[in-house]
Amino acid sequence: MNQTLWIAAGLLAAVALVGGISKTFVPKAKLAAAPGGRWTRNFSVGFVKTLGVVEILAAAGLILPAVVGIAPVLVPVTATCWVLLMVGAMITHLRDDGHRRFALLNLAYLALAAFIAWGRFGPESFPA
């Protein structure tokens, strides 16, 4: 179970890192033209970039606290926050884009984060 949780956290961290880097460093116009990026048209550049930085921090929060052994409780806390972020992403995609496939992808990320939060708060929590 521990190994499965590490793999799940690594996959979710990779998703968060890629999404965060793209939102932070790719121009908003280019994001808006990409599949699933139409939602960015309704938000400011600052909001999109801030969301990107939050995603980069989430990628770090899913891995680094456990690796360095400093405040490992931040791993399930980060996963829980990711669940909330994905709820917002699903609402945004369904409302703005009407693309169910992106909402379903967000649902998969939400499920992965919920699994990590459950596992790390519960049966495979890190020692204090």
Rank of each mutant, 00 (worst) to 15 (best):
N2T: 15
Q3I: 15
T4W: 15
I7S: 12
I7L: 14
A8P: 02
A9W: 06
G10K: 04
G10E: 08
G10S: 08
L12I: 06
A13E: 00
A13R: 01
V15P: 00
A16K: 07
L17D: 08
L17N: 10
G20A: 07
G20C: 07
G20H: 01
G20Q: 04
I21Y: 15
K23G: 05
F25Y: 10
F25D: 14
F25H: 09
F25V: 13
K28N: 02
L31W: 03
A32R: 05
A32D: 07
A34P: 10
A34C: 08
P35R: 10
G37D: 06
T40V: 14
R41Q: 14
N42C: 13
F43M: 08
G46Y: 01
V48D: 00
L51H: 04
L51R: 02
G52H: 04
G52Q: 04
I56E: 02
L57R: 10
A58Q: 00
I63D: 03
I63R: 00
P65M: 06
P65S: 09
V67N: 12
V68I: 15
V68T: 14
G69E: 06
I70V: 15
I70D: 12
A71R: 05
P72W: 02
P76S: 05
T78H: 02
A79R: 01
C81V: 13
C81A: 15
W82A: 10
W82F: 15
L85R: 08
L85C: 12
M86H: 05
M86G: 09
V87R: 04
G88S: 02
A89L: 02
M90T: 07
M90D: 05
I91Y: 13
T92I: 01
H93Q: 12
L94T: 05
L94N: 04
R95V: 11
D96I: 13
D97R: 06
D97P: 02
H99C: 12
R100V: 13
R100P: 04
A103T: 06
A103V: 09
L105F: 15
L105N: 10
L105M: 14
N106C: 12
L107D: 04
A108N: 02
A113D: 01
F115L: 14
W118R: 08
G122I: 09
G122S: 09
P123L: 08
P127K: 08
